[in-house]
């Protein structure tokens, strides 16, 4: 491990052993619908409460990822998991049955990248041989907690994003301990800083998070001396259309032109033309299912070689919002290479 500025470069890169995604109905109908391991029309997953449904998705995502490896659950040394439900109950309940040491995370929609970055640090540091990063979000549990009851007849402003129903799991192994040693690897990680440029509008998360994405990407480029051209895809999750466009402009203002290779998980998961989803997808599950299906799949197939995956999280709570505070945002970056 080499530390350059605030970026950690892994000279013995942890390997992504396996990955899995569980998605809901709207995601199934979206452009990436065929890439998910499990996609259900009934997003209750047979449970009585939305929180239970979300827990079930995390459970299935981790189980599916585990089944793709040759390991038993007890081979996994640590799980890093988090979600949007208060006190991260979807993770606690969803992963309870596996009896694996767990580190709970709250990074809002940045949780997937945060979990992968922390797993990699632990693996590269020699504290673990196998780690897992798991996260989820459910449209219904997020709506009832952050917005309105599901049957409430209000309109959403066009800048609002649509919480993805889905869960993703990534299992990583220490370099040298990996069975699937030809899989994509984590080459570097940059932990984000709390960043804001004064946005307060909770219906414009993309606008609030774009400065964080630009900040972390800029620091990564400065730390490593790499250029946008060194990557096939720079993908944020989940800024939505407006947030993605703002991030590209902020980066351009700083001298980094990423416009031809940048995309956002929130823009990829749904049909952008359909205004039903507002500015695009959001929620921990959004970047989790896009990474753990399409992106890693394309990397394994050799269509993408170097990818920067930047999870972006809006770290406000209903309390801070009603108290008139700005939206603090964060973005964690991992460089995935094959």
């Amino acid at each position: 491990m080499i530390r350059m500025g605030s970026t950690v470069i892994f000279d013995e890169p942890p390997v992504i052993e396996s990955w899995a995604s569980v998605a809901g109905n709207h995601e199934k109908k979206g452009p990436l619908g065929s890439y998910f391991d499990i996609a259900e029309e009934d997003t209750t997953f047979g449970h009585k409460t939305w929180e239970q449904s979300e827990s079930a998705m995390q459970n299935m995502a981790f189980k599916t990822a585990l089944e793709k490896t040759s390991f038993q659950a007890d081979s996994i040394d640590y799980i890093f998991a988090g979600d949007l439900d208060n006190q991260c109950i979807a993770s606690s309940f969803g992963l309870m049955s596996f009896n694996i040491p767990m580190v709970g995370l709250f990074g809002a929609c940045s949780t997937m990248a945060e979990g992968i970055a922390l797993s990699s640090l632990l693996l590269a540091g020699g504290a673990a041989n196998h780690c897992a990063a798991v996260t989820s979000s459910h449209f219904c549990s997020a709506e009832r907690q952050f917005r309105y009851p599901l049957e409430y007849g209000g309109q959403r402003p066009p800048t609002a994003q649509w919480t993805v129903t889905g869960a993703g799991a990534t299992i990583l192994s220490k370099s040298g301990q990996a069975v699937a040693s030809g899989n994509p690897k984590i080459r570097a990680a940059t932990i984000g800083r709390i960043t804001q440029l004064g946005i307060k509008d909770i219906n414009n998360m993309g606008g609030a998070m774009a400065p964080a994405a630009a900040d972390t990407l800029t620091r990564f480029f400065q730390d490593t001396g790499k250029k946008p051209d060194d990557f096939d895809l720079i993908v944020t999750g989940d800024l939505g259309e407006l947030g993605l466009s703002l991030t590209i402009q902020l980066l351009q203002a700083g001298g980094y032109d990423c416009s031809d290779r940048m995309n956002d998980c929130g823009c990829m998961v749904f049909d952008n033309k359909d205004k039903h989803y507002g500015s695009g997808g959001s929620g921990c599950g959004c970047s989790a299912i896009v990474l753990n299906s399409y992106i890693l799949g394309q990397m394994l197939a050799g269509n993408l070689k170097n990818v920067l995956f930047i999870g972006t999280g809006a770290l406000m709570s209903p309390t801070s919002t009603y108290q008139g505070e700005i939206i603090p945002a964060i973005a964690h970056l991992v460089h995935i290479g094959i």
Binding site: N25, F139, C140, T165
Partner: peptide
């Protein structure tokens, strides 16, 4: 309250 006895929110996701 009467409706809550019989009806529940539908899956919107």
């Amino acid at each position: 309250v009467l409706i809550a006895l019989f009806a529940k929110s539908k899956d919107k996701s």
